[in-house]
Structures are given as C-alpha cells and as structure tokens.
C-alpha cells in the first residue's frame, strides 16, 4: 500500500510501558498502520498539526495539559481525527466529559480486548 494511504495512529501517554504495549498490540492487529508517539498533551498538539494523524489514543492524567483538553483542541482543529481516551480514570464524570468532547472511551489496563475496542472505533 502507498505510504500516504496507510492510517496514521498517534499514541499519547506519559507511561512508556503503556505506549509500548499499545504500539505492540496495534501492530499485531493492523501491521500496515503507521504509529507515532507523544508523551504529553502539549507534544501531541504539535505533532497533530504537523503529522495529521487519522487516529489518536489519548491518556487523561499526564503532566501538562490534560488529555481531555488536548482531545478537545484536536477535535476542533481536526474534526476528522478519531480520538479514543485510553485512561485509568474510569469514573462516570470522565466518561461524560469524553462524550461531551465527542470522543470514545476505553478503560485501562491495555488488553487485547480494549485495543480491539479502540480499533473498532477507529475503523467504524
């Protein structure tokens, strides 16, 4: 496939383990996808305007701006990007905030199940 046509996924998480896990599981399921990583919401915003990812997986509790704010900003500038919040913060208020920002919610830990769920949302 042409490099330009393969979906690009941006993983945003301050935990190295989580980024690596997510990358490995997505690569298993969708070997063609290109994957880039950011360790904070601020870095993610920069990368989004440069790289224009199709999909974003976003942690919530990170140093700097929160994943929710970052997701909101990405959504306004790039309404086509599909965003999943992948977080240990599982309470109702976070799920609500996710739906308010129009993004999909996936609870940590990162498992085959949660990654399958996220991929299904990206491709829906």
């Amino acid at each position: 496939m042409d490099e330009k046509n393969t979906p690009l996924l941006l993983i945003v998480d301050d935990s190295r383990m989580s980024r690596m896990l997510l990358r490995a599981m997505v690569a298993d399921n969708r070997p063609a996808w290109r994957i880039i990583e950011a360790v904070s919401g601020d870095e993610a915003l920069k990368m989004v305007s440069e790289a224009r990812p199709d999909f974003v997986s976003m942690d919530v509790n990170m140093p700097g701006i929160s994943g929710l704010e970052a997701a909101g900003r990405i959504r306004i500038r790039h309404p086509d990007a599909r965003i999943v919040l992948c977080t240990a913060n599982i309470q109702e208020s976070t799920r609500e905030a996710a739906s308010r920002a129009g993004v999909h919610f996936v609870a940590k830990p990162i498992t085959v199940q949660s990654v399958t769920d996220a991929i299904a949302f990206f491709e829906a």
């Binding site: 383990m17 240990a88 913060n89």
Partner: peptide, 21 residues
C-alpha cells in the same frame, strides 16, 4: 518503575471510581 506506576495508577483509578460512587 514506569510499569509499577502505571499498575498502581490503574488501581487508584478504580478506587476513585468506587469513592465517586
């Protein structure tokens, strides 16, 4: 350390959900 922090964060995330309930 990163892995332990992430595992405990999943734990406290669940605890927060119980407390918020």
């Amino acid at each position: 350390l990163d892995a332990l922090a992430e595992i405990f964060n999943i734990g406290v995330g669940r605890a927060a959900s119980s407390l918020s309930l």
